[in-house]
Nucleic acid binder design. Structure first.
Length: 438
RNA sequence: GCGUAGGUGGCAGAGCGGUCAAAUGCAGCGGACUGUAAAUCCGCCGGACUAAGUCCUACGGGGGUUCAAAUCCCUCCCUACGCA
């Protein structure tokens, strides 16, 4: 993987550049589409590429390990081949599941908190979650952390699985994405500073282990290439797939992940510690308070090496993307566009609208007035409103096409603005319209 | 005409003397969703008053029994099935 900066935003940390991978080039800043289980929900790769113009897909280590199993992914020729996606790919390490299946499990907690958010009545939410999320037994906690790793209980069948940094990397090697992440702990925003600090040190130790293990794997595959491949060592023949994997892993980049919650000293310490390790790029993870996410990003990006790409994990909403691009992030992924789409909400230039609202039942306009996407060119709000009410699958597909097009192209526009040196004006104008009618 | 089973909120359908403005599901209305436990979840859903609450009108119509009736009795109307 190679990263090149083409242009910077004057007086800011933001930049436009290019990341070259085995499966193609990513023009940054870029929005990464999320395909957790090796599919961007409700979309075909062809729609992703042609209708949306997506550049990258991010899949998930934990999910693909559970099903179909990373060995099977490898047998199917790796992530790209398996899902018929030709472009660049990434995998998240399972670090987010430490949070979502751990501290956040059964509670109504998200990694983004808002100043205005009311106190959460934990017990109430736990009760409702038990009721509605099925099979889960009393006090069931699917993720438990210790110094060496995390014990996950499968959310599918309850079986126990132990992830170490090495295990996560090994799985990610088998999945074969272009960019992989070190195993980390995404901490809950509700944790004390004491816990955040403790967890941070552990995440740094895991980062080092992840990096060392990955480099060793690459070494194994580069010296003598496919001959050193494990299946060959067992006496097998060198298959085309083994050769292909040798190439993939040799080129597989690894990003370290910065944590530290919303604490300045911890964020800076984390950026410093990771910058000292020779990662190919960096992820910025963990929880934020919406209002001061800017500061968090700034603290970190001032320290991380400029010449390496930075991925802001799990963000976001349009306003977050402007903030992050301006402050030096190159990649973003977020489930929001596809998730809210499946739930009936779509982006428009003037804010989000909910197609389940009665007022759209006879609205013959397109989802967003000036949008050029496939959905907007061919369908009305009224039709989508009907599809959602009728519980038709096409509703998800059409809304997802629109939302991803909207976000992917918004970031592309930001890139163009950087190249044209008018990012500031573009941001201001865009956000004015977006906010004004919310 | 006779027999049997029924008539409950927009629909389906519980309840069979008090704890019933009435379970549950659907429909309806609104909200949430930020490295996907997610085609998910939450709230409201007879009427009036800002809310805890208070009052009003309600389980086919009418009449009764009872301190108390969606629930028991009588009668009428209607529906389904069976028999003439």
């Amino acid at each position: 993987m190679k990263f090149k900066i083409k242009k910077k935003i004057e007086g800011k940390l933001g930049r436009a550049g290019k990341i070259k991978t085995l499966h193609g080039t990513i023009k940054t800043p870029a929005f990464v589409t999320v395909g957790t289980k090796a599919t961007v929900k409700s979309l075909t790769p062809e729609q992703l590429e042609k209708e949306i113009g997506a550049q990258v897909v991010l899949a998930n280590t934990y999910h693909l390990y559970l099903q179909p199993g990373d060995e099977r992914v490898r047998k199917m020729g790796g992530l790209n081949k398996m899902m018929n996606w030709d472009g660049p790919t990434m995998t998240d390490s399972g670090g987010f599941q430490v949070f979502s299946l751990g501290a956040a499990f059964g509670k109504n907690i998200t990694k983004i908190t808002k100043e205005s958010a009311p106190e959460i009545l934990l017990e109430e939410f736990t009760e409702t979650n038990k009721k509605h999320r099925g099979q889960i037994a009393e006090n069931f906690q699917p993720a438990k952390i210790d110094e060496n790793g995390v014990m996950f209980r499968s959310h599918i069948d309850g079986s126990a699985h132990y992830f170490t940094p090495e295990k996560s990397i090994e799985i990610q090697n088998n999945i074969g994405a272009d960019i992989i992440f070190a195993f980390d702990e995404c901490t809950s925003p509700n944790e004390s500073k004491h816990y955040q600090a403790e967890s941070l040190d552990r995440t740094h130790r895991w980062a080092k282990k992840s990096l060392e293990f990955h480099r060793a794997q690459q070494e194994k595959f580069s010296v003598g290439g496919a001959e050193k491949n494990s299946s060959v060592e067992k006496g097998g023949k060198i298959s085309a797939n083994d050769k292909n994997f040798a190439k993939i892993i040799k080129n597989q980049a690894i990003f370290g992940i910065v944590q530290g919650g919303r604490f300045e000293d911890l964020r800076k310490k984390s950026a410093q510690a990771l910058a000292e390790m020779d990662f190919d790029g960096y992820g910025i993870g963990g929880s934020f308070q919406k209002e001061d996410m800017v500061k968090g990003v700034e603290w970190v990006n001032k320290i991380l090496p400029e010449e390496k790409p930075r991925h802001l994990l799990g963000i976001g909403e349009p306003e977050d993307l402007f903030m992050a691009v301006e402050n030096g992030c190159d990649l973003f992924d977020c489930v929001a566009p596809t998730r809210i789409a499946r739930n009936g909400q779509v982006y428009t230039e003037s804010g989000k609208i909910n197609l389940n609202n009665a007022k759209f039942r006879e609205d013959l306009g397109s989802l967003d007035e000036n949008c050029e996407c496939y959905t907007c060119k061919n369908y009305t709000r009224a039709y989508l409103a009907h599809l959602f009410r009728a519980d038709e699958m096409l509703a998800s597909t059409l809304a997802s096409i629109h939302n991803l097009y909207f976000i992917v192209n918004l970031v592309k526009k930001m890139r163009r603005a950087i190249l044209k040196e008018n990012f500031g004006e573009f941001k201001e104008a865009w956000l004015n319209t977006y906010k004004s009618s919310q």
